[in-house]
Computed example of a mutant assay.
Amino acid sequence: MSSKKLQGPFQRENPNISIPGAATFALGRLADAPLQYMMFTQGWAVKALAAVGMRASNALVTAGPGVAGLGPVPTLLTGMYAIAGIRHAYWALFTSDNHCSTGSSLGIAVYNTAVNIANTLVAVHMLTSSPHPILGSFTDCIGWKQWAGLALFVIGISMEMIAEDSRKKFKQDPKNKGKIDDTGLWSVVRHPNYLGFLLGRIGISLVTGSLVSTAAHAAVQFAIFFFGGVPEISGYMATKYDAQWMDYKKRVPYAMFPGIY
């Protein structure tokens, strides 16, 4: 991986947190789940699909046991959107120590919302040809893709949270001043937070029921990290920690996937 220095949305050299930026990040992520819920319940997703000639049905969005007027799959998706939004809002307000401008924060929030709008549209379209029954219990109405997606989401968001919170505690300890966190998940891969986010994103997409859409979302998110996030952080760390960073890369050779990448 190249150590060429790139500029990402976070100004890592700036210790002053942007309050407007953090607030924009948090509010933008928290607004995502209500928007997706409205797309399901108000028929916006169905209208958007119909406008481009794709099959969709309002009745199938609400059919079967669910919560707040939604069927099983929309219920799962909306819940996952909400949990991810709350998690990232918490990170922006209480965990992050990087300066992120209002514009950059808005861009990140819009990107996440756009990806989830795509997931919502795919889910509504897939419901028109779902092989699973809409009667019976909640678990009767979902299949292996939903269970696998939910598992990946739980693993991913837990990994992301544990990695970020443990690093914050490491950096807050005066004994670790000037040191790179190489404990816990950070001793396995150099970017466990990115891996967690990627797994969570794949999990949400898989719940839609479309393997093609899931693969596409996974490829796009991986490319963003591979060509953007990872080299940007590597360049910053090489500049700040020099030999210590090189030693860390030797001890933890995998950027995101143990034994693979």
Rank of each mutant, 00 (worst) to 15 (best):
Phe227Ile: 02
Val67His: 11
Leu195Ala: 07
Ala82Lys: 04
Ile117Trp: 02
Glu164Cys: 09
Gln244Ala: 07
Leu211Gln: 08
Thr128Cys: 11
Val122Thr: 07
Pro258Ile: 03
Val73Arg: 14
Cys100Arg: 06
Gly149Val: 02
Gly71Ile: 10
Cys141Arg: 04
Tyr90Met: 06
Val52Thr: 13
Phe25Gln: 11
Asp182Val: 03
Met126Phe: 13
Ser166Phe: 02
Gln42Glu: 13
Phe153Thr: 04
Gly228Val: 01
Gly66Gln: 11
Ser210Asp: 08
Phe170Asn: 04
Leu76Asn: 06
Ala148Ser: 15
Asn14Phe: 04
His125Lys: 09
Ala219Phe: 09
Asn193Cys: 03
Gly259Glu: 08
Ala216Cys: 14
Asp97Thr: 15
Val189Glu: 09
Lys175Asn: 13
Met237Leu: 14
Gly103Lys: 08
Gly228Asn: 06
Tyr90Ala: 05
Pro9Asn: 10
Arg251Glu: 01
Ile162Val: 13
Tyr254Met: 02
Pro65Glu: 10
Val52Trp: 12
Val73Thr: 05
Val115Met: 14
Leu49Ala: 12
Phe10Asn: 06
Ser129Leu: 01
Met161Asp: 07
Asp165Val: 10
Ala163Ser: 09
Ile134Arg: 14
Ser18Phe: 12
Thr183His: 09
Tyr81Phe: 14
Leu199Glu: 00
Lys249Ile: 12
Leu150Asn: 04
Gly143Met: 08
Ala51Met: 04
Ile233Asn: 13
Ala84Tyr: 11
Gly203Asp: 10
Gly178Arg: 03
Tyr254Gln: 07
Asp32Arg: 15
Ser2Met: 08
Asp182Glu: 07
Gly8Met: 07
Ile86Gly: 05
Ile157Gln: 15
Gly229Thr: 02
Gly235Asn: 09
Gly8Lys: 12
Asn176Ile: 03
Ile233Gly: 00
Thr75Lys: 05
Asn98Asp: 15
Val110Lys: 07
Glu232Cys: 04
Ser166Val: 00
Phe226Gln: 06
Lys177Gly: 01
Ala219Val: 07
Val252Phe: 03
Lys175Pro: 01
Leu106Tyr: 13
Met80Val: 06
Gly149Pro: 02
Val230Gln: 00
Gly229Gln: 11
Pro133Ala: 14
Met39Cys: 05
Ala223Asn: 03
Pro34Cys: 08
Leu60Cys: 03
Cys100Tyr: 06
Thr95Met: 10
Asp32Gln: 13
Ala26Arg: 04
Ile134Thr: 15
Phe225Arg: 00
Gly143Ser: 14
Arg55Trp: 01
Phe25Ala: 01
Val207Pro: 01
Ile19Tyr: 07
Phe10Ile: 08
